[in-house]
Design a protein around this nucleic acid. Structure first.
Lengths: 249, 249
DNA sequence: GGGATGCTTCGGCGCGCGCCGAAGCGATCG
DNA sequence: CGATCGCTTCGGCGCGCGCCGAAGCATCCC
């Protein structure tokens, strides 16, 4: 029959890999870990609402499959995503898995949803309305060129330098990548540059973590910086979401 | 608890999507369909060595899940991958799922394996040793710039024009993307440019399909063209593989 | 018309996997 | 030292899913 070759060995590997994500509990783990931090087994269990024993076994499988890395410390076992490539892949699959806009049941759920859609981390870079707006602004200002691929222009280079961000030279990691935003369905920046930008936003106090998840909050200083450096005016998102219908733009 | 939100709705979507690939038969289907062509239910069944009834049901699920598109024609039902994005994602997962070098059992299997590793289609662009060599040559000749993202240079633009390939202007598809080669573990070109290049290679007679799978063969004309246009000398791959150990470079 | 051929539907079988609670174990704390 | 805490291991339960063959239904060919 020919052709079976490619498939037999490799189809199995593909299926095994996918099987790791093909369970709602394990998927929940990976999604939670997309915040880029390390979680304990207990935290993951509570998050996904399963028994700790169950969570422990799932963690075993994910580590064995190479999706997660672990490190033990005292009586804790910390889990995080294995590497940025894995994170990118999971994010890509999530985007493909579709904009299922998650029926919102409670008001506080609506708050959290909006906070996530507004600004969050995507492993090591920024995502959400704010990240897409930043990408758009950078494009508008001629810092990014999309017409022959995606690349930083000389202006973009200069801008980063001005902020004190060094563009990391070639490792095996792509310097600049576009990542389809899961809520906006439009691209934001990832890759080494995206990560450096996000790191800078944290250290410069533009954004801070809020709650235990992936959501971040743009500080006053952050709003000022975005206005000054990119000419964008992100709305204040500490106010309740129902005020906001027109502010997203 | 907080944080459950993101996960509950979305973790389910992620898991459902992954479940589509999490079966060796369905994975085999998708891998086969990565050749970019449309297969019938019967062909897929024979390829994956399952009963036709089984294949039919799998096809249903893949179509319902949005991974495959179908079109019926007389008593046939043709299946292909839904779109280039889906293809890219599957290829990415395959690469992540790992370089499991597929233990080779028979001599003819070795032939097929080498043919695949040497040159094949990856949905709508080229992959394998040849594709990676082409990408390297284009980089060496200054047609591609990687240091600030991945982009065509002016030289690259001119080269494509010389071949009569128009760089497709912005649709929602990325113009140029690097795709991790599954056999070489190094990047080759994808995106609209990769697809255009592959299409050109077919129409210009540089390559032809061989067998029923994804493998392609570089013609004499193709070898001449690669030498002339890129200064690379791909070895003749119609000869048996054991001759070739040193020729791959 | 009759007889292939390609596909779908259905019933049924059996394995695998996700779940839990109980018990055990090592680290930590008082 | 004993009590607590975080995690792991184990046994057992039940659902879901992948598989098949038989039967049915179109389509195409003579």
């Amino acid at each position: 029959m020919l052709g079976g070759m490619d498939t037999e060995g490799n189809g199995l590997a593909l299926a095994s890999w996918a099987a790791l994500l093909a369970d709602r509990t394990r998927a929940a783990f990976c999604l939670a870990l997309l915040d880029g931090r390390a979680w304990t087994v207990g935290e993951l269990a509570r998050h996904a609402r399963v028994a700790v024993s169950t969570a422990s076994e799932h963690a075993d499988r994910l580590v064995a499959g190479g999706l997660l890395a672990q490190h033990r410390q005292g009586r804790h076992r910390y889990l995080r995503l294995a590497d940025p490539e894995t994170a990118a892949l999971i994010e890509a699959v999530t985007a493909a898995a579709g904009p299922r806009p998650t029926p919102v049941t409670s008001l506080s759920a609506a708050h959290r949803r909006h906070a996530l859609a507004y600004a969050r981390t995507c492993y090591d870079h920024l995502a959400g309305t704010v990240a897409v707006a930043m990408t758009d602004a950078m494009t508008r200002r001629g810092m990014l060129a999309w017409d022959r691929g995606l690349a930083l222009t000389a202006d973009g280079d200069a801008w980063l330098a001005e902020l004190g961000i060094a563009v990391p030279a070639g490792g095996r990691r792509p310097v600049l990548r576009s990542c389809l935003d899961w809520t906006e369905r439009r691209p934001h920046l990832a890759g080494a540059v995206g990560a450096a930008l996000c790191r800078h936003a944290f250290t410069a106090g533009w954004i801070i973590r809020v709650g235990s998840g992936r959501a971040v909050k743009v500080t006053d200083a952050g709003r000022a910086a975005l206005a000054r450096h990119l000419g964008i005016e992100p709305p204040d998102r500490t106010e309740p979401p129902h005020r906001r219908a027109s502010a997203v733009a």
